[in-house]
Design a protein around this nucleic acid. Structure first.
Lengths: 114, 114
DNA sequence: CGTCTTCCCATAGCTAGGCTATGGAAGATT
DNA sequence: AATCTTCCATAGCCTAGCTATGGGAAGACG
């Protein structure tokens, strides 16, 4: 209804969440909340990772063995769970990055050919 | 098991199928089978749209009103259903293209910042 | 001190939209 | 006749997003 432009929410495209999380963790240990903030910030406030997407994803990544977790107080003295990449997670990151590149360029070829 | 590099199958990333189909139809009427072939070809044989993905997607697009369909014999004299874009479909294509651009650049910002 | 905000985690239940598997009909090829 | 290719379509599965909801603990503010 408003005349103002709605601050349109942008979701992450399905399939890229793991990659974004893995990449973020490649810089070092981080807790979930921080991961979401960092992705939001690095993307220029465009990407928004919902908590209901993030935590389930992290659980799946634990099960897959891509990350390990450790409880530790945060910088703000709250209880937080810090995640870090395993070898397997690093390998996965590499695979996802190159797959992403390959697929995105293929898509570009399609949508640029009129 | 083989020593040869498997011709690894690449799926289209969820969320981009509509865009690829819409874009393909922007060049004019085409039947389903042809759409899949064209996407495959334009992508440099990288993207592979499965029939089990394509036809349900086309049905959904009919319901959404992005395309209309017409039965007509194909170039090979087979029964074929030709799809074409509606106004609404053209609008949707534009929206998906610009959204895609926006999100992909945001993702690049994240994965390029180490 | 009570309340609010911020930080941080987590799950249940829904939904969209891919996939595999399957089936069928009709023309072309051998 | 048998097989291949073209063309359509659906059922049933699964991944992985989402919203909605809940809670606990720290710090700020009145």
């Amino acid at each position: 209804m408003g005349r103002r432009t709605e601050n349109q929410k942008i979701e992450i495209p399905p399939g890229t969440l793991y990659m974004l999380i893995l990449k973020t963790l490649a810089n070092g240990q981080m807790h979930g909340y921080g991961i979401a903030q960092r992705i939001h910030q690095l993307s220029g406030e465009v990407l928004q990772v919902e908590e209901g997407s993030l935590y389930p994803a992290l659980q799946r990544m634990l099960i897959k063995g891509w990350v390990v977790a450790e409880w530790r107080p945060s910088e703000n003295n709250r209880r937080a769970r810090y995640y870090s990449l395993t070898k397997s997670g690093q390998k996965q990151l590499g695979a996802e990055l190159s797959e992403f590149d390959k697929v995105i360029s293929a898509i570009h070829r399609v949508i640029e050919t009129a």
